[in-house]
Design a protein around this nucleic acid. Structure first.
Lengths: 150, 150
DNA sequence: CTTGCTCCTGTAGTTGCTACAGGATGCACC
DNA sequence: GGTGCATCCTGTAGCAACTACAGGAGCAAG
């Protein structure tokens, strides 16, 4: 269902909104489709016309994505920041949970980094089969006994 | 094209291979489909029969995925570790490039962590509109002047 | 009116899986 | 041989969060 038809001069085209927010045109349409963004009114020709509220919501989404929040988390944040103000503790809960996830990921990545860095450093570039990187990937090379029954 | 029909006692079923390697049955079939794994021979009844080579390749893929290599990177690594041995420097290049990516990601995540940790710490849980988390997400709250022409 | 750019809808693809439906096979037991 | 249950098969679709494209329409300037 299209909103009230409006004239072009009243707001922004999708291209203008895209430039202002740094969000791809197609992504804006995607967000509308999945109901992250309210339906904007249209011109008589069918073009979307965006107002300051849309700009504000889209900028919010963009910023939240930059911080790594999922779209569902962002939906919840948008609701909490809406007219019916909720306790900041709910916002904090979402953000803290997200922060926990980021910390876990950092921890994982650092383990990977340490292992890879050590292995790459051992790599003298000599001709295989002397290759420390492959050694940690290949069960036969890795020093584990080959399964004789296989 | 099905391989040579073989009897069941010659190797492993897909379920057994899945248990041994920790890779999901459906993921094994997926890897076969996208040609990460060679086609195994089948029984007269159409069931896959896996030999030690399959086990070895799948374990390699699993380990590489654990280390965060993409499937394309793993394809290249498998080729390099194959019968026609390549210089270890090519393996090293792939691994070093991957390590660079991991380091970049850690760096990004730490920036996110710092910003979020600071913001969450400021969150006293009081009733909005006093909410530091929303403050960094919302352009209107963030201290930037509202666009008067919007 | 023409031109060139922007916008529209609908569809499909990316990466790496994961899940399911509907049916077939295999094996142990009776 | 029949039964029951577990395993396996193929094909299709979905997930997250986009991204790209085709074919056509709209719009503003000249």
């Amino acid at each position: 269902m299209r909103g009230i038809t409006t004239s072009r001069a009243d707001g922004l085209t999708i291209g203008e909104l895209s430039k202002l927010t740094g969000v791809n045109i197609e992504t804006i349409r995607y967000y509308e489709r999945i109901k992250m963004l309210p339906l904007p009114p249209r011109t008589a020709g069918g073009r979307r016309v965006y107002d300051p509220t849309h700009f504000r919501i889209l900028a919010f989404i963009r910023r939240s994505r930059e911080l790594g929040f999922s779209l569902d988390e962002i939906r919840a944040l948008i609701r909490l920041g809406g007219p019916e103000k909720a306790s900041c503790s709910q916002v904090r809960e979402i953000a803290a949970h997200h922060l926990d996830g980021i910390r876990a990921k950092i921890s994982d990545l650092r383990k990977l980094e340490r292992l890879l860095a050590k292995t790459v450093a051992q790599c003298t570039g000599s001709t295989a089969p002397d290759c420390p990187v492959l050694d940690i990937l290949d069960v036969r090379r890795a020093g584990q006994p080959a399964r004789k029954d296989l």
